[in-house]
Nucleic acid binder design. Structure first.
Length: 357
RNA sequence: GCAGGGAUGACGGAGUGGUCAAUCGUAUCUGACUGUAAAUCAGACGGCUUAUGCCUACGGGGGUUCAAAUCCCUCUCCCUGCA
């Protein structure tokens, strides 16, 4: 599944992740296309930033337009017009992001969709079924993700880890059932997720459990949920020596440039994050030195240069000025968010590329 | 000319005696955003300021009142009818 090509003194490694939709050079960053598209961008534009893999979401696509519908339309690759590998998140993150509108049981989770009001239940089995119907190439186990609730952190964290482990076993069973030889489907990859919050013992236990379960890759979940940079880095440092070298390691939801570098230098191969695209739509872009620029600010109104003169993204190379972007943001023109998204995505891709041979 | 109605902070627009430096929206300024309920959310927004503090303010001027954006007189401008 994962072939390590180069290990460097800085702790980083470069390799190749083999999926049924092609091999991917690591380390890499996956833009988030929750509902089937990276907001405001066409697939070719996403690819133009250097992205190789797209992340889409089980929960949201299940709600609309539905996995059966997508399956009929030829699967996610056809539907999203993205021929390259697609990873689907399992819906586990929604346990965290929709925490006020869901109920967790041993069986799974019942969500009350905040928009439609409809009840949606997800179980490990159902998550596997949906992801396979969608046609994802990398499938995530259904995990239980908790935030940093100080009042009941310990108890809830232990529960989350136990759920995650038991659910992983159920995911594997269901995944194997649905992908055995009788189905004639070329098997996608299945990744298990490590939980444990900021508790090192729990984390270690979780890494060992997930790695010994036979999954194709290891995801670190439950970070970037509000802890400090130092706490995140401590944990990544702690986990680094525990990884199995022939499994891909995916740090979920992390996209701050400094965190990306730190993680890569502590053995992480893959990332996803909404930050580059969401921030971009809100006017916030990264420039050399990881500095954040708010393009809506009045100081850019007369700035003729690009976002970053050192940047090779389409937006900067074409010559769109900060002054224009500021104006478009102020005028609520969606082109602003789109151009800024291209820039931010490229910023993260460049970081990844700098660690490849 | 006569009769009504109106003039509120950048704009729109509440408020008709004290709890009003004045609801709210827009605009403006700033910040946040990490497996997307997010082109969203939060704060600031008369001046000076650390301020529960002072000053200047609801078209101009004058008055009544302990107290006026709110009541009275007058002037200016705008709108609607009638001549």
């Amino acid at each position: 599944m994962f072939k390590e090509l180069q290990f460097r003194k800085d702790g980083s490694r470069a390799g190749l992740l083999k999926t049924r939709a092609g091999s991917v050079a690591s380390p890499f960053f996956m833009p988030v296309a929750t509902r089937g598209a990276v907001k405001s961008l066409e697939p070719a534009e996403v690819a133009g930033t250097g992205a190789q893999v797209l992340l889409e979401n089980t929960y949201h696509l299940h709600l609309a337009p539905g996995e059966k519908h997508i399956k009929k339309l030829g699967g996610l690759h056809n539907f999203s017009q993205w021929p390259g590998p697609i990873l689907t998140d399992s819906g586990g993150f929604q346990i965290f992001s929709l925490a006020h509108a869901r109920k967790i049981t041993e069986e799974g989770v019942i969500f009350r969709d905040p928009v439609s009001g409809q009840k949606v239940s997800l179980t490990p089995e159902k998550s596997m079924q949906i992801q396979l119907d969608l046609g994802a190439d990398i499938i995530m186990a259904f995990d239980d993700l908790t935030g940093l609730d100080p009042s009941k952190a310990k108890v809830r964290e232990e529960q989350a880890v136990e759920h995650t482990h038991r659910w992983l076993q159920r995911c594997i069973t269901e995944f194997n059932r649905l992908t055995d030889k009788t189905h004639k489907v070329k098997r996608p990859l299945l990744f298990g997720i490590v939980q444990g919050g900021l508790d090192k013992q729990l984390r270690q236990k979780s890494v060992e459990f997930v790695q010994s379960s036979g999954v194709d890759g290891l995801a670190i979940g439950g970070l970037s949920v509000g802890e400090g940079t130092q706490q995140m880095h401590d944990m990544l440092e702690f986990l680094a020596p525990l990884y199995d070298p022939d499994k891909a390691r995916y740090l979920m939801g992390v996209g701050q440039p400094n965190n990306l570098r730190f993680a890569i230098e502590h053995g992480i191969d893959m990332f996803d994050c909404v930050l580059p695209t969401r921030n971009a739509r809100h006017g916030s872009v990264w420039v050399t030195g990881d500095k954040k620029l708010n393009l809506k600010n009045v100081e850019h109104a007369t700035y003729k240069g690009p976002i970053d003169k050192n940047c090779d993204c389409h937006t900067c190379k074409t010559g769109y000025s900060r002054a224009l972007l500021r104006h478009l943001f102020k005028a609520n023109d969606p082109l602003a968010g789109k151009l800024a998204s291209i820039h931010n995505l490229r910023y993260l891709q460049r970081i990844c590329e700098s660690y490849r041979p």
